[in-house]
């Protein structure tokens, strides 16, 4: 009887070449500085670059939306001003929670990429842009909901 373990399972086109993924641990900075929205957006791009399945992307998106909703809810219920002092801490916490899901789903895939000789892409430009644009949009959303 043929040994199942010795059947070829690696296809030549399994890993298409594309833009370099970012190190998942680096995504913690946009998460803490900008909140859940920037880290979720960047993580979805990273999931695509790492060739992760839809299940992993859905987990990142779900965690990001849940963290964002939690931030808005907690800020609206407990604080007057959503973007200063404790509001900022809640934002960083929400971003950190979203990042935990990112780390759980992308750390292994990134290490596999590194073991194949791949190098990490630079997060500086996209990270700063995401924090400025999406972090600002998130803060605006929190302020609007908290002020309503």
């Amino acid at each position: 009887m043929a040994d199942e373990l010795f059947r070829p399972t690696i296809s030549p086109t399994a890993r298409p070449a594309g833009r370099r993924p970012w190190r998942p641990s680096s995504l913690v900075y946009p998460a803490l500085l900008g909140g859940a929205a920037p880290v979720t957006a960047l993580a979805l791009v990273n999931a695509h670059r790492l060739g992760l399945p839809g299940r992993a992307r859905a987990a990142v998106l779900g965690a990001g939306l849940a963290a964002l909703a939690a931030r808005v809810l907690v800020t609206a219920l407990l604080l007057d001003d959503g973007t200063r002092g404790p509001g900022r801490l809640i934002g960083a916490l929400a971003g950190g929670l979203a990042w935990l899901a990112v780390s759980a789903t992308q750390k292994g895939a990134f290490r596999g990429y590194e073991m194949r000789g791949g190098e990490a892409g630079s997060l500086w430009g996209p990270g700063v842009l995401a924090v400025l644009v999406l972090g600002f949009a998130e803060a605006l959303l929190v302020l609007t909901v908290a002020g309503a």
Binding site: L32, R88, L89, A92, L100
Partner: peptide
């Protein structure tokens, strides 16, 4: 501790 925990401890202390 890692960036996340250090950051939260620091910002938590300040708040």
């Amino acid at each position: 501790l890692g960036v996340l925990r250090t950051w939260l401890i620091a910002v938590g202390t300040i708040v």
